[in-house]
Design a protein around this nucleic acid. Structure first.
Lengths: 318, 318
DNA sequence: CTTGATACG
DNA sequence: CGTAGCAAG
């Protein structure tokens, strides 16, 4: 991800550059054009297609899940995040980066009668860091926190809900950090998390959602060239994601839309990145590959504001 | 000063109490009144009288000084503090609690062609703590920083400007702290500062302004009873102020308005204290007592917003 | 309640 | 750029 104080690694045209670049650009590719024409290159936005509500075999969806990295639950609530959720009305709501101890939850969040079953995981040590939540309309058979490994379960990053037909896992995968200071730890995490998911998958098929903190392929971020050494797009992290797919899981969005570019779920707050759609796809729904017959749609709700990530929604006919 | 999380020590009627108190109050002091009358006890505000621009002997003022604890220069600039200053247009502007390293000064502050002579004192160790400034229209003969004692000169609290007829000292006196953790240090400061001022005063008469972080007498704060153990109103601090007066200096505001109550220069941001005028007089103009013949007026600009303190202005015919 | 510095992203 | 916690007032 882009670093502070550096020259916009992931921004094709920073505001400062726009002023000087155009002449050179036009002289190259606009050679045939008349000198009067003013080239206003608007940002390439992404238009999510209409929701497909049936599975390949024509079954109507029975499960709607929304996942959102809220980047601070309290600020997100103030920015009307909950109103968007009420409109979307998923059966299960998964939140990442809540950054909020349970006792400090906003009352509006505590209430939510639509979701009587609420589960919170918070960072043990550092208050206001990490943290995930899972809210359900119907009660899960069971809930577990973490992935069963001491080293990886101190930061409130994973909640697993067991339902009759499947597991639902929500995760906030550790960021490799500025200067990749935590890349080595991230690789250990990736291996442990993969093993955890394999274990679940051996019992029941699963749905995994959340901020996996990696853009898998070049198509998954605006500026792949400039970010090969940035947290979230290193070869190590990308390969970790690849191994997850190899282990029997499928990236639902990319499965359904294998060639669709400019589909991102995160934009740095810096440099007006969101307005320019200079983003990354870091948030995913992965499913056990044997669930693909039940997959209806995997959506990116780019319009929803309130965080530096946007929400994503999955429809399954389970 | 009032403490966090406690029940408004200095607030006569907290919002929560207002709802329940009136009945009891009315039955006592409103016994003769009809039951229909609704007693709306508005806060007792302070109305600063019109500026007196001449000295007792009838000389027009020649020096106008404004002092303001800005509680963070950068936030204060954003809140249009400078626009108020431009309107007030003093000859010398003294600021306390700038909380800003010189290199981080807002450009608007750097400019200010009205004040070509600008002097900044910042805390050496802790960035964004303490700090005072002195801005002049005419160049002082000399400027010194601190009070000449190592122990007391690490936090950017004093600037002294020498002019032909007088010294001008601006100070941000150390707060005794929550739980009076720094009261002992404060007493050492008071003694050292007093000695410093005595030394100056032996050379030329002086004007001292700034946040002296003490309410001298009961008239100088809303709730004297409840604050005898609060920083800013302990016997130790009050006595320190008394000794300053004994040393040959006069509190100009109180000299001119010996009986005027509800005249404050600070209100905690908490509990809506300013709207209720639950405040303290912590900001002063003291002058060498032999300058009283040249004193025109000492004003409290309670309406000026942008900080938890308001500015004060002195007019002298020097 | 509000400021600013710092950690993290 | 923006959200946290913290220290200080």
């Amino acid at each position: 991800m882009p670093k502070r104080g550096k020259k916009a690694e992931d921004v094709d045209s920073a505001d400062e550059l726009e002023a000087t670049e155009p002449e050179a650009k036009k002289s190259k590719k606009g050679a045939a054009k008349g000198p009067k024409e003013k080239v206003v290159e608007g940002p390439i936005l992404y238009q999510d297609p209409p929701n497909k509500l049936t599975s390949p075999s024509g079954q109507k969806y029975t499960l709607k899940v929304t996942s959102w990295n809220v980047d601070g639950l309290r600020a997100w609530v103030k920015k009307k995040g909950l109103e968007w959720v009420r409109e979307e009305d998923p059966d299960v709501l998964c939140l990442q980066e809540t950054k909020c101890a349970e006792k400090l939850l906003p009352p509006e969040m505590r209430e939510m009668p639509e979701y009587p079953h609420k589960y919170w995981a918070c960072a043990g040590a550092k208050e206001g860091y990490s943290g995930v939540a899972l809210l359900c309309k119907t009660e899960p058979l069971s809930i577990t926190y973490g992935i069963g490994e001491e080293e990886h379960d101190q930061e409130g990053r994973v909640i697993t809900a067991e339902f009759p037909s499947h597991f639902l896992v929500t995760a906030y995968v550790p960021n490799a950090g500025r200067g990749l200071v935590r890349l080595e730890y991230r690789q250990r995490w990736d291996a442990a998390f993969r093993a955890y998911l394999r274990g679940l998958d051996a019992r029941k098929p699963l749905v995994l959602c959340g901020d996996l903190n990696v853009a898998h392929a070049e198509i998954d971020l605006k500026n792949p060239k400039g970010n090969k050494k940035s947290a979230g797009f290193t070869p190590e992290e990308r390969q970790g994601f690849g191994e997850l797919l190899t282990a029997g899981f499928t990236d639902t969005f990319r499965h359904l839309y294998p060639e669709t570019p400019h589909a991102y779920t995160f934009w740095t707050y810096m440099m007006n990145a969101r307005a320019k759609n200079v983003g990354w796809r870091l948030d995913y729904f992965l499913v056990s590959t044997r669930l693909l017959g039940e997959l209806c749609d995997s959506k990116i709700r780019s319009q929803a504001m309130g965080s530096d990530h946007c929400p994503i929604t999955l429809y399954m006919a389970l």
